[in-house]
Amino acid sequence: MKETSRKRRHHLRVPVLPEEKIQIAQQAKQAGMSVARYLREVGQGYQIKGVTDYQRVRELARINGDLGRLGGLLKLWLTDDVRTAAFGPETIHRLLARIEATQDQMTLVMRTIVRPQADQ
């Protein structure tokens, strides 16, 4: 375990090109680290593992909620509830199409999370 109470007093200066600086900063951000921590850990041979994009995870949670609501409506219709008597087959087909579209949207978001950032 690392000691966190010790202050780091020595600095290393590494000249880089502007595009290298951008690339290093992007990789540090993908790993959820500051540039200093990222370079320190890479320099000491630690394998860097990226963090999941929390914005994408929140988006998946929202989509999952949408699927739950749509599934609830479908279940209500299938139970012959009085409240759904006015819904005809066209409404149900639209609902099924929305569920399918939402599943497709969820698949796209999952692919952006699973696929490494460099591949996008």
Rank of each mutant, 00 (worst) to 15 (best):
R6P: 03
R8W: 07
V14Q: 01
V14P: 04
V14M: 07
P15V: 04
V16P: 01
E19Y: 02
E19P: 02
Q23I: 06
I24D: 05
I24E: 03
I24A: 06
A25Q: 08
A28F: 01
A28T: 00
K29Y: 10
K29T: 09
K29P: 00
M33F: 00
A36V: 06
A36I: 00
Y38E: 02
Y38H: 03
G43T: 01
Q44C: 11
G45I: 04
I48D: 01
G50E: 14
V51I: 15
D53G: 05
Y54W: 11
V57F: 05
E59F: 05
E59R: 09
L60F: 02
I63K: 00
N64R: 09
G65H: 05
G68R: 04
L73R: 08
L73C: 03
L73Y: 09
W77L: 02
W77E: 05
A85I: 11
A85S: 09
G88N: 05
G88S: 00
E90S: 10
H93N: 11
H93L: 12
R94A: 11
L95E: 01
L96A: 06
R98K: 14
R98L: 12
I99E: 02
T102K: 10
Q103E: 14
D104F: 10
M106D: 00
T107K: 14
T112Q: 09
V114W: 00
Q117N: 11
Q120W: 13
